[in-house]
Amino acid sequence: MAVYWGAACGGCCVSVLDVHETLLTVIQHADLVFWPIALDTKYADVEAMEDKSIDLTLFNGAVRNSENEHMAHVLRAKSKILVAYGSCAHMGGIPGLANFSTKEELLSRVYDESPSTVNPDKVRPQHEYKVPEGTLEIPNFYEDVCMLDQIVDVDYYLPGCPPQTERLVEVFLAIVSGAQLPPKGSVIGVSERAQCEECTRIKSDNRSVDRFYRPWEIEDDGVSCFIDQGVICMGSATVGGCGVRCVKGNAPCRGCYGPVPGVTDMGAKIMSTIATALNAEDENDIIKAIDSIEDAAGTFYRFSLPASKIRRKIQ
């Protein structure tokens, strides 16, 4: 078994660690052959492995540079089952928000503009750099952030930011026990319906929203549906499976689990729902109400921009 991280925060790897003592059960069944944050296996070691010699690879993180892409190809070749683990591998995730910017915008922010940057010579990272000892290489930084299946074939998706550790264990045990696996391409560890099914907040029969608020702008009553209170919650467009974790913690759902099956563009779908929930009829009132939605695209595509129909800001 292998665990790899691409463009990720590390949370997914930690969620694997979160299996705690169950890890013992895991390693009873499988050898961990590659896991950059825990083991010292080198890329070359993996490249040298025989094709399909890894039973299961959990690939977390998006694909953002040539290193990520290379490892995606390598791991695909070496693994029997490749799982896009976590929101970033599944849909692009938070790193995917970089698709709202161009590569140039990102680099100039980091290397020129940011207040903490001192870079009078305007040095920028080079893919190759000649030093007396030879040529140094760093990965090529791509224009776009991609999700894993835009690069290689993926067997399963285990969504979440990060995924529920319990789900991982279930999936792992299913694989090792040789149980009947779901059809290739399935999103696993999720329910069939949206979060609302499990959400216990009270939903109004007469929804009618004047305007939207950011969560800190209102005092959440703790019992009624966020949308009814004018706070954008992605739950109704997000497939269940996490146990409505965020809402239970009194935060609206942000949609990390991805869409309900049958929805082709999660952000577009929730935009439809959210806009419809408004009660304004006059065009100016409508514009005003819509204006109250801060960072619309970022809100509705927080985890899924690269997976959306129009996967990046148009240049």
């Binding site: 935009m271 806009a275 419809t276 960072d295």
Partner: peptide, 22 residues
């Protein structure tokens, strides 16, 4: 009232399009 709902969606999509530079 269908067209009011359409109008609301239209304005939200416009907002989205602006961020997407369309």
């Amino acid at each position: 009232t269908g067209n009011y709902k359409c109008l609301r969606r239209f304005h939200l999509i416009q907002k989205y399009m602006k961020q997407m530079n369309i």
